[in-house]
């Protein structure tokens, strides 16, 4: 039953994703990519459990590495997206000199 449940969540989320992203204008496609990339760093949550289990050395090593890489993804992704989005200005706000 759990398989069905997880698959259900998976399918619905994909449809939701399509609906959400279709509305993003092409101006924002690069920040969208880096921002959604940061979200895919969610795998960090999964890595935490392995890194902290401390009863299986291979899992701990893999988990720790996964935590490091996923954190790069999360921290770097959100920061760089923020940096980019801060640059997008409308004409009135001093875009024109």
């Amino acid at each position: 039953m759990e398989i069905i449940f997880l698959t259900f969540v998976f399918v619905l989320s994909i449809f939701l994703g399509f609906e959400l992203i279709n509305k993003v204008p092409s101006t924002l496609h690069t920040p969208l990519m880096s921002g959604s990339n940061a979200i895919s760093g969610i795998t960090l949550v999964g890595a935490l459990a392995s890194a902290g289990s401390a009863n299986q050395s291979l899992a701990t090593i893999l988990g720790t590495l996964a935590v490091a890489f996923a954190t790069i993804n999360v921290v770097g992704g959100y920061l760089v997206t923020d940096r980019m989005l801060a640059m997008f200005k409308k004409k009135k706000q001093g875009g024109e000199s």
Partner: peptide, 22 residues
Amino acid sequence: IIAYEYIALGIVLGALVGAVAA
């Protein structure tokens, strides 16, 4: 989760690299 030292190590390293790169 019973051991936090590896997690801390991974997060600190990753956050540093990510922040510098960004």
